[in-house]
Simulated assay, not measured.
Amino acid sequence: MSLDTTTHPGRPGLDELVPSRYALQVGEIEVLVISDGVLPLPTAMLAHNADPAARAAWLNDMFLPPDAFDWALNAVVVRSGGQTILIDAGLGLDPDLALPRAGQLVQRLAAAGIDLSSVTDVVLTHMHMDHVGGLLVDGVKERLRPDLRIHVAAAEVKFWESPDFSRTSMPAGFPDALRATAKQFVKEYRSHLRTFEEEHEVAPGVVARRTGGHTPGHCVVRLASGGERLTFAGDAVFAVGFDQPDWYNGFEHDPEEAARVRIRLLRELAATGEQLVATHLPFPSIGRVAVAGDAFRWVPALWDY
């Protein structure tokens, strides 16, 4: 398998008018960021603890619509030490929540020349439906390896046995859909789960580390090879989090802890200068973090063709 961006005749997805995959190297580790599509969600969920006028001003400054906009949804494929690792699996089928423009991961993996049978490991940053749903699409499980390993924090699996949504601020229907998807996922893939407590090396230079906050078992994935580093931050970082890291996202189950995690992570990334990729930053979401006074600044990478 080669994680390249070459066009191949006859493969699906060639008529798309926007790019949906972007390849880069982290030392000897191959990385491919893949767009699963976008999620149209209310802007109030960006900062449900913020003054509405302050949130409106931020949206206006960013040239974003005031009521709803499209959240990017990114996953990552990594190849290291002979292993092919999928980090998060996208939304899968639309769970009757008017999210028809996501759930593209399986087709876009195929368009990139990545066969599902080549995936040796899956790492889940957490078990929200837009991170596990792609594995529940009809026919996907049958195409995966019987010895597939799915790495997830033990605290995450435990949480979804009886999830608490009392601190979240989600649109109607989302809590029920999240519960149902997590329950179905564990039922389908329990024998494949490989849980860890705080940190686990999935492959050479590929380490999953539990952060908590967004969900109790939320983790980030750190890549390191040849003096280069990249962090896939999952849902620890959202676009508004650079300017306003203490604003709460509506999907955060422990918003205070999520803000603390976000600030610690952004400070660390600013200090190291390593690259950052995150689930809901605009595709391909590759960039670095700079410090700007009491806040942070997102520095997008220049695309390498």
Score class of each variant (00 low, 15 high):
166 S>F: 10
34 I>W: 06
84 T>Y: 07
86 L>R: 13
39 L>E: 05
45 M>E: 03
36 D>I: 04
163 P>C: 13
242 F>G: 06
294 D>E: 15
83 Q>T: 15
150 I>T: 00
42 P>V: 09
287 G>L: 08
135 L>Y: 04
89 A>Y: 06
9 P>T: 07
56 A>I: 12
142 E>F: 04
33 V>Q: 07
218 H>P: 00
217 G>V: 04
285 S>G: 15
37 G>Y: 11
115 D>F: 07
107 Q>A: 11
248 Y>M: 11
205 G>K: 14
23 A>P: 05
149 R>L: 05
94 D>M: 13
65 P>C: 05
26 V>S: 05
2 S>E: 14
291 V>Q: 12
220 V>T: 08
150 I>S: 01
258 A>F: 09
290 A>T: 10
63 F>W: 13
167 R>G: 02
273 G>Y: 12
297 R>G: 01
159 F>R: 15
232 F>T: 00
216 P>E: 02
118 S>W: 05
240 V>I: 15
245 P>Q: 07
163 P>V: 13
80 S>Y: 12
270 A>Q: 10
84 T>K: 11
90 G>A: 13
270 A>V: 13
256 E>M: 06
292 A>T: 06
94 D>G: 06
120 T>H: 02
210 R>N: 00
134 G>C: 10
207 V>C: 10
7 T>W: 12
223 L>V: 02
286 I>F: 00
258 A>P: 03
78 V>I: 15
300 P>M: 11
255 P>E: 00
144 L>Y: 03
87 I>L: 15
163 P>S: 09
132 V>S: 00
275 Q>P: 00
250 G>D: 00
152 V>Q: 10
99 L>P: 02
110 A>G: 07
244 Q>C: 10
88 D>Y: 09
70 D>S: 12
4 D>K: 09
242 F>V: 08
280 H>Y: 08
